[in-house]
């Protein structure tokens, strides 16, 4: 299966376009944040989060480039799992960045470091850099909120975990901006700890996102049962498919795993039947393209670890 199924081709094109938009728009945010961040920890943390926010978009575009490629001699099963690998990579990066930021901000808070935000002079006018930081943070809220909302329905239709995680992170990005603004406003009011505390809260949020995504990505890479897009629960679609397969072949052992956006089902202990029901019948009301492969293993030929 080298080509994308026709029902999702348009959504796939739209997703790619949105991710290019994300790279362009979020790059402007990153540049503005870099130019204004000064010594504020909350600003630095929000800046890192915005850079991290580019990773899911980049990994999506890389995997989207690889996924439709035809299988080769070295990759005889094609590149369907490029998406899974991309998801895992971005989840791990998110975790490490969360830990690093919690450490730097936590120690900053314990050392009672007083952040200095100096004045700046533009066109002969001197004003506090903190006001410029607040304006930059307010701007940083706008693109992710819009892009996150646009991506979510497409990610659901594509069953794309990278795109979905990206959309969730972006939708929640306004919290990062608001926490950063609260931190700078705290400094303006003479509350030295407000900045580090805001940064610490942002960092905890980053780590939580990372842990959730890593759990889900790991499950997919070790051939765990397909998970839902949101959270770590089992996919309802996969459970329904399992029920239908078990009804058709009650003597077999049905196992389903996820490869990228597709469900790969195996019925163990059953000789390949001559008459296999159509995908429409097996998938019921769920999208038929989701069933990427159905294979049968005759009795005595099960692979190691296939017993329950």
């Amino acid at each position: 299966m080298s080509e994308l199924p026709s029902p999702i081709r348009q959504d796939f094109r739209n997703a790619k376009r949105l991710e290019w938009w994300t790279l362009g728009w979020m790059s402007t945010v990153v540049v503005i944040m870099y130019l204004t961040m000064g010594a504020s920890q909350a600003m630095k943390t929000a800046f890192f989060e915005d850079i991290l926010g580019l990773i899911p978009a980049i990994t999506f575009l890389v995997s989207a480039h690889l996924e439709p490629r035809a299988p080769t001699r070295k990759f005889p099963f094609g590149y369907l799992r490029a998406n899974s690998l991309a998801f895992f990579a971005s989840a791990v990066v998110l975790c490490f960045m969360g830990i690093y930021l919690i450490w730097t901000n936590g120690t900053g808070l314990m050392k009672a470091e007083h952040p200095t935000i100096p004045p700046v002079t533009f066109f002969g006018e001197t004003f506090w850099l903190g006001w410029l930081m607040i304006a930059a943070l307010a701007y940083s809220i706008v693109p992710p909120v819009i892009l996150g909302r646009l991506k979510q329905p497409i990610a659901r239709r594509l069953r794309d975990k990278v795109l979905f995680t990206d959309s969730l992170m972006q939708k929640a990005d306004w919290q990062t901006g608001a926490a950063g603004i609260a931190g700078i406003a705290g400094i303006a009011l003479g509350l030295w700890w407000a900045d580090s505390l805001a940064a610490l809260l942002i960092a905890i949020g980053i780590l939580k996102d990372g842990i959730d995504a890593t759990r889900s990505a790991s499950a997919e890479l070790v051939d765990g049962a397909p998970r839902r897009l949101e959270g770590n629960g089992l996919s309802e679609e996969a459970v329904r498919l399992q029920d239908r397969l078990e009804k058709h072949w009650p003597d077999g052992t049905v196992r389903i795993r996820e490869s990228g956006r597709y469900l790969f089902a195996t019925v163990d202990g059953v000789v390949t039947p001559g008459d296999i029901p159509s995908n429409e019948e097996l998938m019921g009301d769920d999208p038929t393209w989701r069933l990427g492969r159905l294979s049968f293993t005759p009795p005595g030929k099960q692979e190691p670890g296939s017993g329950w």
Binding site: I117, W128, G130, W131, I134, A135, A138, I141, V142, V145, K171, A172, W174, Q175, A178, I181, A185, I187, A188, L189, G190
Partner: peptide, 25 residues
């Protein structure tokens, strides 16, 4: 969690109020 246009308005208004006071402290 969702955001509303009023969130941005609140942030902008807060900035305006803060600049009016003798800040930073």
């Amino acid at each position: 969690i969702t955001s509303r246009p009023s969130d941005l308005f609140i942030v902008t208004a807060a900035c305006a109020v803060l600049s009016a006071c003798s800040l930073p402290r």
